[in-house]
Design a protein around this nucleic acid. Structure first.
Lengths: 214, 214
DNA sequence: TAGATTGTTAATCGATTAACAATC
DNA sequence: TAGATTGTTAATCGATTAACAATC
């Protein structure tokens, strides 16, 4: 579609949310302008990297002045697709599902929670953060009707591959996967994994090998 | 301490848990040996990368044969510090704290949950996965006595910096941070962040820009 | 032994940093 | 205008991949 775009590296993309967060803080503190140098000191990265990263998407700054905080904040939000009102469903109403359903940043960042699903009769029909927990039996009808953009997978690990497959078949194009398994999807579907075990093990490594890194 | 060790890059460290997971699967399926080529096909990485990564820590394979699954699995577990029985506490007994306290992989990977803390009188004294929720007022005494290795931060964002500081002052050397804020710690303390908002935004970007990546 | 596959060195590729002309 | 800071090119650094001798 956009034929002038060169490939933006994954490293850059992973840094965008962090820029967005720091700019949001500045905005909250009524700071109107920031230079790459100032921002780099706050964020503990190089000014050069910030300028390179931003210039993947366009020239947002002004020589001699720096960047307008508000307009850069909005531009990055735009790039991240946060103003698309992405409709989100949560699959699995266990503790993790509860935590996610009550997660404030959700709505704050432009995501709209539109449904929560589970298979357990104990949970179906109950209310969670103003949403009725729906039966997985109704998921097809729901997705056909409401066309969610993102599904958050918070089911037990064993159920993950089947549920993921089902969601992909129904046409969901984005999965946030909390299950401790890699999920195979077609090329036109995006998956982002949150593997708590991996984070915990990485931390464990760092603690165990701290002396080697000082 | 280990003066022959060259610095292991962060990229390599982040991949170790995934190797560990795949080797665990092989082991579960009674597969005794694996070559870097076979593993690379399963994991969708290059065989060269696997061999390079492993050789940061030693020669675990055997020419003409490949790797013994069980001994490599154990070796990586060792490297990750999973057999150190790392004592872990959870700070914050909200939905996220509940999800974490009930997280099975925890104990499966050698971490020992030894305490859960909260500030809310509603929660203190209640039981969570066989642990009594303790008051934050008692944290100093608890840490002094039980010397936990890892603290998982699952408190509201506003409380995060103060609580983190408190934990560091008490001598905790590892923090798993679920709060949406960067935490500043001394050099001898390790922090691993799990920023759900970041993952969600990265996913949002991928969905919004899918066409550019095919 | 012949075949397979490692460990390791060398080549390539990509990401980060530095430098500086352009320009506000 | 002079000073500041960007956008962008060039240099450096590091990570990934390829190649192959060593060896089981």
């Amino acid at each position: 579609m956009n034929n002038e775009s060169k490939k933006v590296s994954n490293e850059v993309i992973k840094r965008l949310p962090r820029y967005y967060r720091y700019l949001g803080e500045l905005l909250k503190n009524n700071i109107l302008r920031v230079s790459s140098k100032e921002l780099s000191e706050k964020m503990n990265v190089t000014a050069s990297q910030i300028r390179q990263d931003l210039n993947c998407f366009g020239g947002f700054g002004q020589q001699g002045y720096g960047y307008n905080v508000e307009s850069l904040y909005k531009a990055i939000g735009e790039i991240l697709g946060l103003y698309n009102g992405q409709k989100t469903i949560i699959i699995g109403a266990g503790y993790l599902g509860h935590a996610l359903a009550n997660y404030k940043s959700f709505e704050n960042r432009g995501f709209k929670l539109i449904g929560i699903f589970d298979t357990s009769p104990d949970k179906i029909g109950k209310s969670l953060n103003n949403h009725e927990i729906l039966s997985m039996e109704n998921i097809k009808a729901f997705v056909d009707k409401n066309k969610p953009d993102i599904a958050i997978l918070a089911v037990p690990k064993v159920a993950a591959p089947e549920v993921a497959q089902q969601l992909v078949n129904l046409g969901i194009k984005g999965l946030l996967n909390f299950c401790y398994t890699d999920i195979l999807v077609p090329d036109d579907v995006s998956v982002e994994n949150v593997h708590l075990s991996d984070s915990l093990m990485t931390l464990s490594y760092k603690i165990a090998n701290k002396n080697k890194h000082i």
